Amino acid sequence: MAFFAAARQGRRDDAELGTGVWRRAHDRFRRGLDRYHQILEGVDDDDVYNELASLANELAQLLPRVRAVCVAAQAQSPSDGLDIPGALLQVHRSLSRAGNAVATTAEAAAMARLDGERWGIASAGLENVRRRAEVVAEDVVEAERLLSGAS
């Protein structure tokens, strides 16, 4: 059953996001978010886990916003290749930064997990994860702002 659901989702993604840069930007963000959630599985300390899970929830709430920006960008400037539509270059740049930032946040969470084993909730790594999650949110807000200004 999961195979058919994935196939339907893939067709829906193709229809809404295309197969070009907007789809890639969305998928990059989603993969980084998935990686962050995978890292949570290895956290032993409950306090560290709760803090990282709270940040995971905040990041997950950004995915529908990223998707909305990518769908709107595809509707405004369709892309089926690797060329970034010039009118929305800055939107793509912000989405790319958000995707990279969520991946970096996942890396910071992995380090915080290891640091948390020694220091627990007092780990300095948790503050690093918080700061990186803020950067992700700022990039998504910037992409939304730029897209609304380009309309």
Results as ranks from 00 to 15, higher is better:
residue 10 G to K: 14
residue 127 E to Y: 09
residue 72 A to S: 12
residue 107 E to Y: 12
residue 142 E to G: 10
residue 135 V to Q: 08
residue 63 L to M: 12
residue 68 A to I: 04
residue 40 L to A: 03
residue 70 C to A: 08
residue 71 V to C: 09
residue 107 E to G: 12
residue 83 D to N: 07
residue 17 L to K: 04
residue 54 S to T: 14
residue 81 G to D: 10
residue 86 G to A: 07
residue 39 I to G: 04
residue 2 A to Y: 08
residue 140 V to G: 00
residue 74 Q to M: 09
residue 76 Q to W: 10
residue 104 T to E: 06
residue 50 N to L: 15
residue 58 E to K: 12
residue 117 E to N: 08
residue 117 E to D: 07
residue 64 P to C: 04
residue 6 A to E: 11
residue 112 A to Q: 04
residue 90 Q to Y: 04
residue 48 V to R: 06
residue 80 D to H: 13
residue 149 G to Q: 15
residue 110 A to P: 02
residue 46 D to G: 11
residue 23 R to M: 13
residue 59 L to R: 02
residue 8 R to Q: 14
residue 77 S to A: 15
residue 13 D to N: 14
residue 69 V to H: 02
residue 10 G to R: 13
residue 98 A to L: 00
residue 99 G to E: 02
residue 118 R to S: 11
residue 69 V to T: 07
residue 100 N to H: 10
residue 21 V to F: 00
residue 121 I to K: 12
residue 121 I to N: 10
residue 119 W to E: 15
residue 47 D to T: 07
residue 103 A to D: 13
residue 131 R to Q: 15
residue 88 L to V: 06
residue 132 R to T: 02
residue 109 A to K: 02
residue 134 E to H: 08
residue 58 E to W: 12
residue 26 H to N: 12
residue 17 L to P: 03
residue 91 V to R: 06
residue 36 Y to E: 09
residue 54 S to A: 14
residue 145 R to I: 09
